[in-house]
């Protein structure tokens, strides 16, 4: 079974790849707030939500 730690590291790596690929390869030329601006806002919200999912489980 793959450990939770490995899943978390893989998820982080995927987020980093998306952070570069989407703005430069997919939405970069959209001259509107629905382009890179919206992408980065959503990307950050997903990253923050992921962090909350992981650290809210912590116990004393």
């Amino acid at each position: 079974m793959v450990s939770k730690s490995k899943i978390a590291w893989t998820w982080l790596a995927l987020l980093v790849v998306l952070d570069l690929v989407f703005p430069w390869g997919v939405v970069g030329s959209t001259p509107r707030f629905t382009g890179p601006f919206l992408f980065w806002v959503l990307w950050t919200l997903v990253a923050i939500a992921s962090m909350f999912v992981l650290f809210l489980r912590w116990r004393e």
């Binding site: 982080l12 987020l15 980093v16 890179p36 980065w40 990307w43 990253a47 650290f55 912590w58």
Partner: peptide, 23 residues
């Protein structure tokens, strides 16, 4: 313009590292 937003929000995304290293 918008690249500055990506630059700073990528920092915030990097806080994911704190999930591993803070504890």
């Amino acid at each position: 313009g918008v690249g500055a937003l990506g630059f700073e929000l990528t920092y915030l995304g990097g806080l994911f590292l704190a999930v591993f290293f803070l504890p």
